[in-house]
Design a protein around this nucleic acid. Structure first.
Lengths: 252, 252
DNA sequence: GCAAAACATGCAATAACATGCACAAAGAAA
DNA sequence: TTTCTTTGTGCATGTTATTGCATGTTTTGC
């Protein structure tokens, strides 16, 4: 087990549970508690957590999570979702993919032997697709927003308006059966709306923590979702609401 | 087993598993661990992974966007050129940066504490700038050309036309005192011309093998070059030709 | 205040690492 | 062809990083 893996696991657990215990980590990693304490000390020195007696807690619980930090969160789940999500793809399709760590995971999971045309405003998605030989990649430029990892603004909207797609992989922020898909940022929501408008169907892959939540800006109604990819542990009651509105549920 | 095959395998495994172990790779390839470590060292130098004790993990989130093969060539020289090139920057400037491995090296060499507005059509440059907090980044979208690592086409030209810059970091292809700056690709040349037109000055960083060569498509006349950054071993006669036409020579 | 748990520090063993060198294979030049 | 150069590889050498243990200190709960 690499030191880096332990550090990554600790970061993930901190983001997920809000705390880690030194003894618990030691037995899970199969190393001595001294080693875990050394790990915690290093991460604390790098400002990635705050040490407390018995373990550690997140450094800045209320700091806005940038895309880099978010993508380290729940890596396993997102990878599983991504593998399930790419199964809706068929060769020759045209896609919109917007930002978000889940969408980046999906982009990385796209197999090399499928032919696609993809338009994206996310640098991470574009980077992941940059070396897929059969993917025609269209970068939707504009003002780059560091916290989102995507381009937004008038230029982006204009570029989207010129395109059409079969599917739109919508990086959801909030997902609620009555309020539909919602976003935290106004400019981001504008781009998502434009992509949704010019797409024949919407695909959303969502971890459980996104379900039954809502953000300020409305993006799309729930009945516009064609495929909803969720974890196996997703609450059945919530899924039924989406299913009634026409969404096809796919489990990771 | 070819070196390149090992490198490709390592890249694939990193993308799939998120880590590689030196010992494991050695036994799989049937080579010594020293050879594997050499491989890892090279790939790390080219920015394609990050070395950790025991193996390696994926580099930055956007590592895939950088031009893999070309940028592994003459890394030292380009890094030196890049460090010299960024010395022309002053806080508050607006820049165009187009594609090419030298320009990617320059983007990576930009210090974190300088405030800039940068518009680029290169995914690699954009990725390098994505986490510089004081850089306002404008991505020039369009059709992505895999071989160039940049976006080209009408959309790109339209986006460039709306902007203006103090300096244009031109990734040179051919550089000749009489024929000026030239490019191998028509669409690429169009974008370069548009950027040159909307910039107050042109900066070119060129390795020796670019000097006194020319490509089919004309981009800019030699007398439009304001700063020319070259290696210390560059032929003085060639440099004198550019100097006569107004270029300020800077040695790496 | 006291005992137990958690912690920091120094130390030694081990594994991973970098470096220099020799050798072999592949290619270029004579 | 022969010779030379280049490149890749493995091995020997010394160096560095990581780890667990022993020791002494600090914190916590009672």
């Amino acid at each position: 087990m690499l030191t880096e893996e332990r550090h990554q696991f600790i970061r993930d657990r901190l983001a997920a549970d809000g705390k880690v215990l030194a003894g618990e980590l030691a037995s899970r990693f199969g190393v001595s508690e001294d080693t875990v304490r050394r790990d915690l000390r290093e991460l604390a020195k790098a400002g990635q957590l705050r040490r407390v007696y018995g373990g550690a807690v997140p450094a800045a619980p209320f700091a806005a999570a940038t895309i880099g930090q978010r993508s380290s969160h729940a890596v396993e789940e997102k990878h599983r979702l991504a593998k399930a999500a790419v199964r809706v793809l068929t060769s020759g399709q045209a896609l919109f993919i917007d930002g978000g760590s889940t969408n980046e995971a999906i982009a990385r999971a796209i197999p090399r032997d499928i032919e696609l045309t993809v338009a994206t405003n996310s640098l991470g998605v574009a980077s992941a697709l940059a070396d897929l030989p059969l993917v025609e990649l269209i970068v939707l430029g504009g003002r780059y927003i560091r916290d989102l990892g995507t381009c937004v603004g008038g230029d982006t909207l204009a570029a989207v308006a010129q395109l059409g797609a079969d599917l739109f992989f919508l990086g959801s922020c909030g997902l609620d059966a009555s309020r539909g898909v919602t976003a935290f940022d106004s400019a981001e929501a504008e781009v998502k709306r434009a992509m949704a408008k010019n797409s024949a169907g919407i695909v959303i892959a969502a971890t459980n923590d996104k379900l039954a939540t809502a953000a300020p800006y409305r993006v799309a109604a729930a009945d516009t979702i064609r495929h909803l990819v969720v974890e196996r542990t997703a609450p059945a009651a919530i899924l039924a609401d989406f299913q009634r509105q026409g969404a096809e549920i796919r489990f990771a």
